[in-house]
Design a protein around this nucleic acid. Sequence first.
RNA 1: GGGCGGUUAGCUCAGCGGUAGAGCACUACGUUGACAUCGUAGUGGCCACUGGUUCGAUCCCAGUACCGCCCACCA
Length: 1014
Amino acid sequence: MPMEKNFDAAAAEARISALWQEKKVGAAGANAKVGPKGEKPQAFSIMIPPPNVTGSLHMGHAFNNTLQDILIRWHRMRGHDTLWQVGTDHAGIATQMVVERELAKAGAPSRREMGREAFLAKVWEWKDQSGGTIINQLKRLGASCDWDREAFTMSGNFPDAVIKVFVDMYNKGLIYRGKRLVNWDPHFETAISDLEVENVEVAGHMWHFKYRLAGGETYEYVERDEDGLVTLRETRDYISIATTRPETMLGDGAVAVNPSDARYAPIVGKMVHLPLCDRLIPIIADEYPDPNFGSGAVKITGAHDFNDYQVAKRHGLPLYRLMDTRGAMRSDGAAYDVAVARAREIAAGAEASEAEVDALNLVPEKYRGMDRFAARAAVVADINALGLAVTVLVKEIDEDTGSEHLRLEPVVEAKKIMQPFGDRSKVVIEPMLTDQWFVDTAKIVGPALEAVRSGATKIMPESGEKTYFHWLENIEPWCISRQLWWGHQIPVWYGPSATKGEDGVTSFNMSERIAICAATEAEALERFATLYGTKPTVIASPPTDRDLAKAYESNLTAKTLIAAFAADTAGLGAGAGILVYRDPDVLDTWFSSGLWPIGTLGWPDQTPELRKYFPTSTLITGADIIFFWVARMMMMQLAVVDQVPFNTVYLHGLVRDAKGKKMSKSLGNVIDPLEIIDEFGADALRFANAAMASLGGTLKLDTARIAGYRNFGTKLWNACRFAEMNGVWEGHSTQTAPPAATATANKWIIGETAKTLLEVNSALEGYRFDQAADSLYKFVWGRVCDWYVEFAKPLLVGEHAGETRATMAWVLDNSMILLHPIMPFITEDLWGQTGAREKLLVHTDWPDLSLSLVDSAADTEMAWVIGLIEEIRSARTQMHVPVGLKLDIVATEMDAAAKAAFARNEVLIKRLARIETLTHGAAPKGSISLAVDGASFALPLDGVIDVAEDKARLSKAMDKLAKEIGGLKGRLHNPNFVASAPEDVVEEVKSNLEAREEEAAKLTAALKRLSEIG
RNA sequence: GGGCGGUUAGCUCAGCGGUAGAGCACUACGUUGACAUCGUAGUGGCCACUGGUUCGAUCCCAGUACCGCCCACCA
């Protein structure tokens, strides 16, 4: 059956994709070959960066996975034992967000209304229903993963692996719990890590407040200029502070000034009235305030600002939390006056635990329950009303009377501020004092740094290493607990602390919880039982605040504790025993995806896959997750199994639109890879991806370019179609060895094929996907299609017909093979439609060709032939000779080599240059001249020729030559050049000059002749 | 504020010490038996600027300008 005129991408992709999956062509180890002496095949493995289970394929995925698939297919064809591990990530926040949104849309009860268990069931339902989307989209892209090994960070052995790592790290002291100031997302009501915070510059304001000195004290406030001259002296009863977040003043613990700041030296150590609050706070000296910024005095709110937190820690200031989990001013706890009374005692030195300080709600009644932004407005208004705002005199003109008067107005500076936003929620992040779990990254960062420094893991491009070092060398503790439900629940159980009294009676204290970290609940219970002497009961949720309050108020004994809990929890009857509960938090998604390499390979079991494919060969991922994921995988794998997770990390940038803009829904410039595949085919998209994958460049995707590569596929298709129509594949199956060729064109293209193979190999070895694509494009279109197929047309009917058929089949087979990693569909389809094939292309062996196939004589000769044809064509076009008109040609001068070359390729030259006959002799009247290496020709164009135009043509050629000759001569006349440049360079310049001068002489002669005519 | 990168044809990008490249776009011609998703021939560059190193610089070095990206606690 003859081939169709065009490749039907949609039909072929569906058919071939199904075929690959049916044959499991991507299975681990498929096509692996043992060496000639029985050596084990070399292993090659890639871990897919697991997409979010709820996600769908975007251009970044398409790009990223194309590169992975190119490497995988290349190695697989080379007979390596190849694994491309596929799977998805449970993506805690993102997935929980999606499901919550879906529930809301469907009018279903909210997450909190339905409770943890029911909600998680819904998430699983959602996962089962839509989790396969992106996997199927990867298949459409042509990804040849081992689909049977699809992993999920919440399924199979993965949860056990994650828990085991947590327990091990906990036991080694690499994970700890602590009350720290963390980034709190008031929308999702969870802590997030530093990396999940995006700092964005927004328009903000700075307010200036006066805090009055206690007891009506005053001081001399003196400002001086650089020379020490007094510029302002006044008696003040206040200190002025500036803030962009007025609402946090309710939790101030002090006002800080720089110890070197003479203006405030007299009042350091004194107390000031905190406005709107019934409290006094001290003025302290600390290096943190910059005397040259603002008033030089900073309010210190330890529980709501990271800088202030450090200052507060240094000075032992109490940290008063002002907000609840939703970012509203607290309304819990005791009444304001009660809380203030206690706060004063604490300020005066009363003993107070961290927990107690945290439980104190110092928000005055009027602000309680207000959203933080409403509270800000209220605080500002109230301060203004109290006359405690720093004011400035403004001139006001009465519009009616035209009279001027002066008025005092609060200073509100408009100011650009960097504001933190949650990367998922997009709401303003609140620094919040909470109990969280942390990885003590400082303890595990060393090996991760060393691995890259030593080259055990190579990061490409190199600039990625600098970024990696910079971050890891300044690493902060990693907050890994999230107050979410979807995720790996932290394997820690809490129970009351137990002390055995001298009387042998154990007493319990719920305000002092003890934590037991264990892989399973059973193990945790056993350990509690040992501790308590009796087996406790596990309750689903932690004790309520009320329970804790009770526990705090009365120093409970075992009996009362049990009673208190039994009455209030989960319908458990009295006497249920000592109650323990599991930490309700889940782990940061990146904690589990940090274990992706070993987790997907079956760890902690020493599976054959783990032995064979770990450490993995290459990680290909976006540079945007170098910290989130790459660095953490390095740290985690090294901490857990003491091996690097990958040998090479290839980082790439964000895929942008044709103009270099980020793709975003709001800009409307998002290119959907699936639409591109529908329109141009997956191969075209893949080729475009490969072609733009230069190291370190920005990735700008232009659909015009994709269309160009679709055309490239068509070009290849039609070359094959031509070959197939001419029976090129008849009578032989795939030939590994190149055919013995005698015709120069055949010898030449065989050598070109070998060169291309070596270029592709070296490009892919260096992760230069762009160079591989470029080599193939130039080879297939620029040499095979543009020249070889044309040369073959006459050769296919003459004495060389047999070898030409064999050569063309071999060349096209190799084209398909070499292109297959980049364009798998069209090549697989062509493979099936041409020749008798033993196996699918995807499992066909990658060729092993050597440069000995390059026949330099054939190369030189074909270059000469191509040059001559181009000269003739160019002259014809410029002389407006109709394409259909065949001309005669006269050789006016020809050396032996040129004669032989012409003779051997006469049919080719005549056909492609549209020449009728060749004669030798003098240039006839009215002919145009052309010069090539070793020969001059005349094209008789009597009557056709336009003398003026031909003169212009020759002059232009002369100009170009003269410029080149000038440059070459200039260099040779420079004694320093001849003396210093390498000999071969000098020789090359000399021979170049000779050739150019010879050409120029011919052109000059031609011009002279032309003048004689004209 | 710190770090990293970029500036080459109208556009998007390669190249990187020895005569400037590709794709797209553009111009002219063309249905020559694979291909109009095509062919042939063309047009188009002080390789950002200024110095330096060198026999020679788009390429190496220094500085300048502009443009990106990442990190960062100035209240």
